[in-house]
Design a protein around this nucleic acid. Structure first.
Length: 724
DNA sequence: AAAAAAC
């Protein structure tokens, strides 16, 4: 099998695969853990064992064989022995924490299932997709399409497509021949170029970079957009940052003095078109104070005409000159209208994106025009395609795609803050790239180098990865970014966080400054919470970026029900257990890895199918555990903020914040895991009484309305909120 | 302060 298969699946491979006559699809054998007699009349419910049953089974209290402990032969460093475990009720069997003195496990024992989150092979609960084993190998995953994380473009029409395609696709797409939709002999393209382009740039209002026809700048001529002086201190504060780049010997391309006035500069713009009254994301009190508060802005136009595309209006969005687009603007628009070629359009349609979402309609033309772009769209609004599709189109444009020159250097780079997100992005971008004969490869940590370096050697066009491994390979000399002419930062604001910023700066510095055609290399920054935190990168690497957002994407238009439960600390774990006992998919966010692991453990002990996702798991476990939720083999995932951003799992109906989020951004990203595709979702945040004020502040900044309710174990509200 | 991101 896979070269990196470490045999972690051996247990499942030994397991009894015969189907029990009464077995559910999820558990075929009565001997198999997880077996549950089928009872079609019983209400769907999470599999669980009650206390009596647990008591009756001598081994039931044992800790599952989860990887960190097992593989290290001891308790992980981050969790002192016995630390943090919830007090167990008397009904719990004594647990044995020392695994080494235990007899080897027998797979066919009949003790109750405990979702072995980490080292178990894919569970038997769903065998139909299991035949080709693939869950455990360590190699870079190209998720099988049937269970891959849904993409950012949530569409109600997407499900059917996905269901149709449930063959386990395991082939390496990098190597695969161009797809069938790559043909030239197909029906004529329908993106008729001769009809008026609704998004034609030429009929837009003068852009910000055209300074001459703009109203005079108001606030002086300082060629910078950010008032540094009133910003909160940042480690990358301008004043001490300049030298950093000046030191390098290459020409500064974006010398401020020669730059056009920045888009962040508000006041000189046309009147606002709309949405001044909607929740502002760019002007929050808890942010670093900035130069651009909006009180001094031009009068707004609340009554902007709708129903037709009006890209012309500059929206003054808190210093980010954002062109706003509303959903109605894109009706009837096709990707072809935006400048996307036929092959790519067809690939998009295959991905379920038959017509552009607003953020896509907003950013695609600018990317194709060669501009730097900042894009902000709500979680799940289709940002991946918003940069992925035009990126591929641009690569086609210069350089031409179809010839695969061995060893050619990549020409595009997409960076994400987590491996899972990088994988997910690649699952969207790869088919788009392949539709025109371009190749992508994933460059992220936690997996062997061989495959990644091999792919680079063979030659790829688009890198999708995380900063650490990209830097690593750069230093090893196996990754050459000097020909990268389009760079994308997904979750760009997060990429400016301490710890990310410097690597990102180094990486971007290694990319090309100009294209072979002599044009400026492009940088695209996207995030649902894109704000002035990206100033550091914008100033250093972007040139007159256009800024886009989607209007009307405030919380009031959301399908999410937000609740806050004020809970006594000692009751917290029990309350959580009741909350996650519902049958729908639930993601629980914890602040630390140890707590995430402990909670998942506790839920399993309570008979709830749960798993965990955090940085203490190795990559194959991370990948698999996420997949367990995606595929529905578990319906509770307890995660750290590694899962807060970007990760899409279909049909998550409940997000529980076991620990309050750090800030409103974390709140928005975490809660964005549910309520996707216009579906309903619930977000429940648990806070101790002492944190009431804190969460109220966060909610206010996120502009979310939620009542705080005191609650405790056994409250009816817990069962009501549990995922349906 | 934690988490993420390389080995």
């Amino acid at each position: 099998m896979a070269p990196y298969d470490k045999g972690a699946n051996s247990r499942a491979d030994r397991s009894d695969r015969t189907r029990h006559p009464n077995g559910t699809p999820a558990a075929r054998s009565a001997k198999h853990r997880g077996f549950r007699a089928a009872d079609p009349t019983a209400p769907r419910q999470k599999q669980r064992w009650d206390a009596d049953e647990r008591r009756s089974r001598p081994s039931s209290g044992e800790r599952p064989n989860w990887e960190p402990r097992d593989s290290r032969g001891s308790r992980p460093a981050w969790e002192p022995r016995g630390a943090g475990r919830p007090a167990r009720g008397d009904d719990r069997a004594p647990r044995s924490f020392d695994r080494n003195d235990r007899a080897p496990r027998r797979d066919n024992d009949d003790r109750p299932l405990r979702f072995d989150r980490d080292d178990r092979a894919p569970r038997s609960f769903d065998r139909t997709d299991r035949a080709p084993r693939r869950d455990n190998d360590d190699r870079p995953r190209r998720f099988d399409r049937d269970d891959r994380a849904p993409r950012s473009f949530d569409r109600t029409d997407r499900a059917p497509r996905r269901d149709n395609d449930d063959r386990p696709r395991r082939f390496d797409r990098d190597d695969r021949a161009p797809r069938s939709f790559d043909r030239n002999d197909r029906a004529p393209r329908r993106d008729n170029d001769d009809r008026p382009r609704r998004f034609d740039r030429d009929d837009r209002a003068p852009r910000s970079f055209d300074r001459n026809d703009r109203a005079p700048r108001r606030d002086n001529d300082a060629p910078r957009s950010f008032n540094r002086d009133d910003r909160a201190p940042r480690s990358f504060d301008r004043t001490d940052r300049a030298p950093r780049r000046d030191n390098d010997d290459r020409p500064r391309r974006f010398d401020r003095d020669e730059r056009a006035p920045r888009s962040f500069d508000r006041t000189d713009r046309a009147p606002r078109r709309d949405n001044d009254d909607r929740p502002r994301r760019f002007d929050r009190e808890d942010r670093a104070p900035r130069s651009f508060d909006r009180t001094d802005r031009a009068p707004r136009r609340d009554d902007a005409p709708r129903g037709h595309f009006v890209p012309a209006d500059d929206v003054k969005l808190d210093k980010l000159q954002a062109e706003s687009i509303v959903a109605a603007d894109v009706e009837g628009v096709t990707f072809g209208d935006l400048g996307i070629g036929g092959n790519i359009s067809r690939a998009l349609a295959e991905l379920g994106a038959s017509s552009p979402f607003p953020i896509q309609a907003a950013t695609i033309p600018d990317v194709i025009a060669g501009k730097d772009v900042l894009g902000r769209g709500r979680t799940g609004s289709g940002k991946t395609i918003a940069f992925g599709a035009p990126l591929v189109e641009k690569l086609m444009e210069h350089g031409g795609g179809t010839k695969r020159k061995m060893g050619r250097a990549p020409r595009a780079l997409i960076l994400a803050p987590t491996r899972e997100l990088a994988l997910q992005i690649d699952r969207t971008v790869q088919p788009i790239a392949r539709s025109v004969g371009l190749f992508t490869t994933q460059i992220y940590g936690g997996v062997p180098y061989g495959r990644q370096e091999g792919a680079l050697q063979r030659g790829v066009d688009i890198i999708v990865g995380t900063p650490g491994r990209v830097q690593d390979l750069m230093k090893k000399g196996t990754l050459d970014l000097s020909e990268v002419v389009i760079s994308v930062l997904d979750e760009a604001d997060h990429m400016c966080d301490l710890g990310f910023l410097e690597p990102v700066q180094e990486i971007l510095s290694a990319t090309a400054e100009v294209t072979p055609q002599g044009n400026r290399a492009q940088k695209l920054l996207f995030s649902a919470t894109l704000d002035t935190q990206v100033a550091a990168l914008v100033e250093e690497f972007l040139h007159e970026p256009s800024v886009h957002e989607v209007a009307g994407e405030d919380q009031s238009s959301s399908t999410i029900d937000h609740r806050v439960l004020v809970v006594e600390q000692r009751d917290k774990d029990r309350v959580l257990e009741e909350l996650v006992a519902g049958e729908g998919k639930t993601i629980v966010f914890a602040r630390t890895r140890a707590y995430a692991e402990r909670l998942a453990d506790q839920f399993e002990d309570a008979g709830i199918r749960a798993t965990s996702l955090h940085g203490d798991l190795n990559q194959s476990r991370r990948t698999r555990n996420l997949q367990l939720l995606t595929s529905g083999r578990v319906n509770v995932l307890v995660a750290t903020d590694v899962a807060a951003r970007g990760i899409h799992v279909d049909d998550v109906s409940l997000v529980v914040q076991a620990d309050a989020p750090d800030d409103y951004k974390a709140y928005m990203h975490r809660s964005g895991r549910t309520g996707r595709a216009g579906k309903e979702g619930t977000v429940v945040t648990i806070v101790p009484r002492s944190r009431r004020r804190k969460i109220e502040g966060i909610l206010e900044h996120a502009e979310i309305e939620a009542d705080l309710v005191e609650s405790g174990p056994g409250d009816r509200i817990l069962a009501e909120l549990a995922a349906r």
